[in-house]
Amino acid sequence: MIVAISAIILIIVMGVTTGQRDDITFVEKWVGNIISPVQGVFNSGVTAVGENFSRIINIGKISRENDELRIKAEALEKEVISLRLNRDELEELRGLKYALGYIDDEAKYEPITANIIGKTPGNWFNTFTISVGEKHGITKDSIVLASNGLVGRVFEVGGNWAKVVAIVDNDSSVSFQVLRDNKTQGIISGSITNELSGYVFDPMSEVMVGDKLVTTGIGIYPEGILIGEVKAVEKSGNQLLKTIEVEPAVNFRRLTKVLVMRANSLAE
């Protein structure tokens, strides 16, 4: 009896659970109602965890890529700075070589390039220290040039250094002549405000704004070195004195290298 009843129940269950059915049993509905919300929550949790884990992995990857890009950018920036410094230094050296054209009698002098290693406080290079000295053949009153023209002279010398006084210093003076008319001559001096001014010997001589001034060869400076350009001309009331203001050819705010003309007899 028990076997027969069990067989009947199994046949009924098989018939209910097999094949395509349009309706499901009450038991299946009840079980589905319980399991579906749990399954949805479980699936949502698994999806969220997967997305967060993927996001963490991506953040770590992006961070590593940013670090690599930053290192490459810093290396490129250093390379650009190095190339720019080398280019600027090369241009400076080319300019200093051009300055040799101001010295007609090159047989008396031998040039040497020097770096500026110290200066007085302030924006102007009115007095400064250079990286060459006695052991390089530098002596007191050695001439100092820049690519644009006359800088000044050496006034103190050490073993491997020297001090230079610029023409804009108030202790400096230079005899000049007008480039377009070398008969028009005079004296210009520096000042405590680092401005160049002076006067012409002949108040009747013609000097005008825009005239270029060069050295006369009188004194320690050879003839023909560019000094600057006249930017103002004034006459005294009695016409006995004609004064000028001069814009220096050299930018005394931005010097980094100079050319020192040492005597051949003292050069190594």
Rank of each mutant, 00 (worst) to 15 (best):
I167R: 04
E28N: 08
R153M: 11
V27F: 02
V233L: 03
K97N: 07
S191L: 13
S236C: 03
G32W: 15
T256L: 08
E234I: 04
M204V: 05
N43S: 10
L266I: 08
L255H: 02
I117T: 07
D171E: 11
G224K: 05
T256I: 09
T17F: 09
S175E: 06
I187Q: 02
A249I: 15
S63E: 14
M261E: 05
I57N: 06
D22P: 09
V178L: 06
G45H: 10
G101D: 09
I225G: 00
A162L: 06
G210Q: 06
L96E: 03
T243F: 09
V46G: 03
N238R: 10
L255V: 02
K119R: 07
S189T: 13
K72P: 03
L100F: 03
S197I: 07
G15S: 15
I244M: 00
I2N: 06
V49E: 02
P111Q: 07
K183T: 13
N194P: 02
L90W: 14
G137D: 08
P121N: 08
Y109S: 01
K242W: 01
V200Q: 01
V246W: 04
I220P: 05
S175H: 07
S189H: 14
P222E: 02
T216E: 03
F176V: 01
M208K: 09
K257Y: 07
M14G: 11
I35V: 15
S63C: 06
W124T: 03
T17Q: 10
F201P: 00
T25E: 07
A249V: 10
D104E: 12
K29L: 05
L93M: 11
I244C: 01
K235R: 15
W124L: 04
N251D: 14
L69Q: 08
Q185C: 05
D104Y: 05
N182H: 11
S175V: 01
R254M: 07
E156T: 13
D104A: 12
L83G: 06
E229L: 02
G50Y: 04
E89T: 10
V260E: 06
A232I: 03
G15Q: 13
F42Q: 12
A114I: 01
G217L: 04
P121E: 11
R262N: 07
N160F: 15
R87G: 01
S142F: 02
A48Q: 12
L100W: 04
V132M: 06
K78W: 12
Y221D: 06
G60N: 14
D105M: 04
E65I: 05
I227M: 00
G224R: 05
N66K: 13
G45A: 14
I117R: 02
H136C: 04
F252D: 00
K97R: 11
I112E: 06
V258M: 06
I12M: 10
L69R: 13
A7E: 03
T113I: 15
Y98V: 15
K78G: 13
N58E: 12
T17G: 11
S131F: 09
K257R: 09
S205V: 02
Q239F: 14
I188H: 01
I57H: 05
